[in-house]
Amino acid sequence: MTTRDALQARLEQGIAVLGLTLPAAAVPRLLDYQALLERWNAAYNLTAVRDPAEMITRHLLDSLAILPYVQGHTLADLGTGPGLPGIVLAIAAPGREILLVDSNGKKVRFLREAVRALKLDGVRALQSRVEDVDGQYDCITARAFASMADMLGWGGHLLAPAGIWLAMKGKRPDDELPGIPVGFEVRGMHELAVPGLPAERHLLVLGRA
């Protein structure tokens, strides 16, 4: 079995455990993304995760775990880093307009190459601080980006009136809840079971109050 076959088996098994049904081309494209990230990571240090199998678990499956909660026609992924979860969601559920935001130039160069190489229609990368971004989005994602107070303080203006904010966290972020700014409310807190990942993962769903 080649390395790619082994990675594909790990990815497909994880998708099955998550109970997801993805488009036919999604798995090979996700593996293409992982391979591109692995290649660029060697030179540009985009992620601390170096092992390809760990990338499948910690990046791809971790991002896919929130897919059932994603909604709307437009999505902004704040502090996306190398495209997590934004690029993974673009491949797994195409058809949305997606804005990938990061302030790091190296990461944004990688994002633009990934969008081009993977032919991700409707996806664009922006090098910017979150507070300087314009527009409003049906869904906002942020993965291990900042505290809830900072996240909503910097990017709250980007959430459409009926939109939802999906904050991906490790441990249950109870200590952050008092810091949620006025005008926002918690809609739900979900424990995520990421296949192959022993660490705690939680998803905080917020909306406008």
Rank of each mutant, 00 (worst) to 15 (best):
A6W: 12
Q8Y: 02
E12C: 04
G14Q: 06
T21K: 08
L22H: 01
P23R: 14
A24Y: 02
P28K: 07
L31E: 03
Y33V: 05
L36V: 13
E38G: 05
N41C: 09
A42K: 15
N45D: 08
N45Q: 12
P52D: 14
P52V: 15
A53Q: 12
M55F: 00
I56M: 02
T57N: 00
R58T: 07
L61W: 07
L61I: 13
L61T: 07
L67G: 04
P68T: 10
H73Y: 01
A76Y: 01
G79C: 04
L84R: 01
A90V: 11
G95Q: 11
L99P: 02
L99H: 04
D102G: 01
K107V: 10
V108T: 15
V108C: 04
A114F: 03
A114K: 04
V115M: 06
R116G: 12
L118Y: 02
A125P: 14
S128L: 07
E131P: 03
E131A: 08
V133N: 00
F145V: 15
F145Q: 01
S147I: 08
M148G: 02
W154Q: 12
L159D: 07
L166W: 08
A167Q: 04
M168Y: 05
K171R: 15
K171L: 11
D174P: 02
L177C: 04
G179A: 14
I180G: 00
I180E: 05
E191M: 01
E200N: 12
L204H: 04
L206F: 09
R208W: 07
A209E: 11
